[in-house]
Amino acid sequence: MYRIVEKKILSPTVVQLQIEAPLVANKAKPGQFIILRVDEEGERIPLTVAGTDRAAGTVKIIYQIVGATTEKLSHKGAGEYLQDFVGPLGEPTHLDGLKKVCIVGGGVGCAIALPIAEALHDLGADVTSIIGFRNRDLLILEDEFKAASKSLVVMTDDGSYGRQGNVTLPLKEMLEDGEQFDMIITIGPLIMMKFVVATAKPYGTPVTVSMNPIMIDGTGMCGGCRLTLNVDGKKVTKFACVDGPDFNGYEVDFDEAMARGRMYYGFERHAHEAACNLYKKEVQ
């Protein structure tokens, strides 16, 4: 069992937890993920590590309440326990040799982008961050990004905070102005990452994307997290859990990944409603 040391509500649907897991805290690097189960009957869900405190032996995770499992998780408080917590899984983000980097985060993806921005900042790299949210209420981690970045642009879809528009808007302007990034690292919804790649393409800037497909074991056994890469005109099957989660954005077949991500959409929506109704009943 793994104790929840601290719980913080970052926005109406985004929660941050510190979990006591010393072995994971000792090893986890930016870009890696963990898999947790809330209780004995629960499903295994992958969440990217949002930070670690090695001295305290804790791992920070930030998640958005989207389905039955994250709903269940959101009802656990500090001092309570998670059934399972395993990691760190996947390969860390490659940061070596990067001097000037643009981090593009979208929504809860910003939680995962932050430790990468911080690590790069600590390595002395020049970090530009663009973070985007649907609206002001969903904004998270602005101060943290400010501290880790040389410049920060906040975007909202509805203009309720920062600039109005998609994250690709300032990215395109920067590239148009001749900014030379060694790498663009983007983490967020698939559709956003797809368009970040499309935006960068005319300028030839390398793009790393962080994939978060459906996964079960996360250790290279089930093959559920596979995605198709186009490498030099050849289709190659890769597994996000052991080969990723980071991939060269120009190689990823986003359309397939988006379709696969919707495989259980009906089931999940139903399960989430069922879970919510259960909690509502408890409250009554």
């Binding site: 056994m221 093959g223 596979r226 379709a259 495989m263």
Partner: peptide, 22 residues
């Protein structure tokens, strides 16, 4: 045993295609 093998034929990324392991 580790990662499941796939045939490398078109359509293996469609929804509804599983490895036996999964």
């Amino acid at each position: 045993a580790g990662l499941p093998n796939f045939m490398g034929i078109p359509g293996e990324g469609l929804c509804g295609v599983y490895s036996a392991n999964e």
